[in-house]
Design a protein around this nucleic acid. Structure first.
Lengths: 279, 279
DNA sequence: TCGACACTTCTGGTCATACCTTTGACGGAT
DNA sequence: ATCCGTCAAAGGTATGACCAGAAGTGTCGA
């Protein structure tokens, strides 16, 4: 029936319209008192953060326009923008020019910004061993959880098929590879571990791209993934952990052999153009 | 006076001479290209991030004054400040009024901001089970690593003593408790896992405070810590993991019994004092 | 009547400028 | 030699204006 469709669309609009707060419910936003303990912009951050924790700001909500919100909070627009900027940097808010500022939507898997981890790696001189070690610890736990009774295996099997189908296309293989690990993480049922894994994996991703490009052992890699899949399918946590460990140890070995790690020389993050030195 | 885009771009180079900056500084910072389609402030972030990855900005370094740096990068001061703000929010830079802006120093254990995780918890409705599950996974791995041959046990033993000495002072016991886990993490030799653990633990800390306050089983808790310590001392990873798991499962049980989790009602992080009941 | 296009208006992004507050070092007074 | 006041430097905040992208609105033509 078209009732359903109309209702859904209407809901979206209603949602947007109602939560896009007009001046009428400005009572929600309390002006920051000139307590002046810390910096005013930090007080703005605290305000917004509290509103999120209290549930007054929900996923997908739109904040009032900056000019209005600044007036409501009793601060200037630059100060408000400083606060918004802070929360945007950690992935909680998102500003779009012309559209507004929104609380990041939550329907997708939560994402923790990995750039800070990447920067920490450079600043503290994190070793490849530590980075892979962290990933191994996370993914072994995840694999173990995924093997416990519960969820869907269909998407896992699907990615498996995709991997075998792209054994001669490293770039595409890598996509299925990543998806596979994402699916395992999703099957673990723990979104926090998933987010942390993504954080670490993102830092390692770029180097991995180079490794997989001239990889000759994709077959072997696919076999190991299948071993993981089977262990999960058979609900054998211990076996899943072992398989994941073996897989990641091999991946680490392959990567360390090819990449001149702890490379301070290259920007390891945010290299979007995957085809840079391939041509 | 309003002359449009071309004149504005020209302004960047034609304006005034670079007086006051040393040559070394001038060579380091390159102006951002105006042809970038992304946001200018993001370009600033990218610039600074690359300089850190390349090692041109090191831990503890001080950035040039905002007014000078803005000129060097060819952007306005507010735009530069937006970029600095982003990197400050993720814990990479730190600005002190009157002193300057510094790259965060690295001698101490790296810290990943936990406020984003805390906010994600509220936004996505993370359950207590997931949060504790993540911590358990992290700390079990850490305990296993710490039990492998290697490091110092002195500080661990020290914290053990402190715990037993403060069995009747919950607040102080908690401090030793936290220190103990930090020491175990340090002994694991993996600073990334340590940072991730701290992230999760920080979110759980506040609720834990309330739990430990009226705790009657501190003795039991201390015993479990000793079990962990012994396993690490005896270089028995499997035993260390088990002991850590048991300890955290008990802690979870105690905490879930007392705290009305997944409470959207309370601000779980950073409650320094003033924000809430200002009435 | 209906759809494509242009216009108006919001909204965030950037810029310039001015002033305040804090910091820290320099220099004079004790 | 020590202490303390002064002052320049540096970040923090405020104001106001304009730029650029997005969304909604209205008009015109098929």
């Amino acid at each position: 029936m078209r009732v359903g469709k109309i209702a859904r669309i209407g809901n979206r609009w209603l949602h947007k319209g109602m939560n896009g707060m007009t001046d009428s419910d400005g009572a929600k936003f309390k002006t920051v008192e000139p307590e002046r303990r810390g910096q005013t912009s930090e007080e703005v951050v605290t305000q917004l953060r509290s509103m999120i924790h209290r549930g007054e700001l929900r996923s997908g909500d739109r904040l009032p326009p900056e000019r209005d919100l600044a007036r409501l909070l009793g601060v200037s627009r630059p100060t408000l923008r400083a606060g918004i900027r802070s929360l945007s940097a950690v992935g909680v808010l998102e500003s779009r020019q012309g559209a507004g500022t929104f609380v990041v939507k939550a329907d997708e898997s939560p994402v923790l910004d990995s750039s800070s981890l990447s920067l920490m790696a450079s600043l503290h001189g994190f070793t490849s061993k530590e980075m892979f070690g962290a990933r191994r610890a996370l993914e072994m736990s995840i694999a173990g959880l995924a093997a416990e009774p519960g969820d869907q295996l269909a998407s896992l099997a699907e990615e498996m098929a995709g991997m075998y189908a792209s054994l001669d296309e490293p770039e595409e293989y890598l996509l299925h590879d990543m998806s596979f690990h994402q699916m395992v993480a999703a099957a673990s049922g723990n979104r926090i571990l998933t987010a942390l894994m993504n954080m670490v994996a993102a830092v390692l991703l770029d180097a991995r791209r180079k490794t997989v490009r001239r990889a000759h052992d994709l077959k072997e890699s696919a076999e190991m993934h299948r071993k993981i899949y089977r262990a999960i399918r058979d609900r054998n946590p211990e076996s899943a952990r072992d398989a994941m460990r073996d897989h990641l140890l091999l991946a680490q070995k392959a990567q360390e052999a090819e990449v001149d790690w702890p490379g301070r020389g290259a920007d390891q993050s945010q290299r979007k153009g995957a085809a840079e030195e391939s041509a």
